[in-house]
Design a protein around this nucleic acid. Structure first.
Lengths: 203, 203
DNA sequence: GCTGTAAATTGAACGATGTTCAAAATGGGG
DNA sequence: CCCCATTTTGAACATCGTTCAATTTACAGC
């Protein structure tokens, strides 16, 4: 039996989340059960409910970790170089997103396969993490919107983001290859960005 | 107890699927359980396993129904009018997709929240239903690709499809409004299509 | 150092879930 | 009419999220 003072409540929370992260990596979202976590961290299942009132809260917390990791990737200097042309940075960002979906596939999938029960809304902190994801792309789009309304730039960021995501999601879960060659995805995101950006400039 | 000759095996399959459809509509994917179906159709739970070897097969079958309904919508003459300019038909198709996600929200969500276990591949008939969805949009794009490679047209269809889907998906499950006004989604899909098509023409 | 109290931890229990399968019910052919 | 292949059943099994009384633990006060 685990001792009461083995870990503080915050430490315990970290331990639970860390174990959860590893379980999702190995067995996917389906393998993330209270009893499985408890066994890995040498506690009883009930203890988890002292830290997370329900498993749904834990799921959201794990998704929060994934969103943080994704934000860190999209904020990387790799795709915010001022020397490079903007469109190149945008393509780089799309590539980083695609890489993320492959490197953290189970965690990335869990972001979307877990949905809140019935009519529940996501907590404030979670929504903030989602919204934050658009910021890096909004910045990259600035050069194209010096003479255009800011609202259009925000829209463009969300559109591009959703498009790249949609392509990756269909590739991973559409249960069918999008087009014959294996890595046609980078070709498609490239084509998407080329056309969309050219469309912005021509309007 | 249900009589052995109440329904043929095929009838029973239809009855199970029909009941499943209604359950998903009312309680979402989470409510779709073998015992719930059994109660609604006045059979024992075990009977379902005579028709579907596992619940996963039933889930796929329900998703198949949803894909069929979606295909029927996207094939509607509403967005294939030869008199209208192509871009207007494309916007109409995007609008029809968006309508579908609202009208059949639980079924549409189930398409993506249910993922096959571990490394299993979707059956052939399912993949065919997915691929078929791109065809109507490929047709609408023909006017823009009379002088360009067919491969690009296929890519453009998948890109546009994934983009519109990505926007709808983020709107429904992103757990945060994309942009302040309520129905900014049609504005965003419009902007997406305008820019993307303009980009195609300018290249 | 002892004790009492508040907090942390446990593990059994409850109602679900998907799934299996022996037993029962059924109905058409000999 | 009865036999037997088919269909249907419902109890059983392992597992799930969740609850909660009982136990164990750590520490404050004497």
């Amino acid at each position: 039996m685990a001792r009461r003072s083995d870990h503080t409540r915050d430490e315990l929370k970290d331990i639970i989340l860390s174990a959860s992260w590893d379980i999702v990596k190995k067995d996917g979202f389906a393998g993330l059960t209270a009893r499985h976590i408890a066994k890995d961290i040498n506690y009883a299942a009930g203890t988890i409910y002292n830290v997370f009132p329900a498993m749904d809260d834990l799921y959201l917390a794990v998704n929060g970790m994934t969103l943080d990791k994704l934000y860190a990737v999209l904020s990387s200097p790799d795709c915010t170089a001022h020397s490079a042309p903007p469109i190149q940075n945008i393509k780089k960002m799309a590539h980083l997103y695609r890489d993320f979906t492959k490197t953290y596939k189970p965690h990335w999938l869990m972001l979307f396969t877990y949905t809140l029960p019935d009519g529940k809304k996501a907590p404030e902190w979670y929504q903030a993490k989602v919204t934050r994801l658009f910021a890096p792309l909004e910045t990259l789009l600035k050069p194209y919107y010096t003479q255009k309304p800011d609202r259009h730039r925000k829209m463009a960021a969300r559109i591009l983001w959703a498009s790249v995501h949609g392509l990756c999601f269909l590739e991973e879960t559409g249960k069918t290859p999008l087009i014959t060659p294996q890595d046609s995805l980078s070709e498609m995101t490239g084509y998407l960005i080329d056309c969309f950006v050219a469309g912005i400039e021509s309007k």
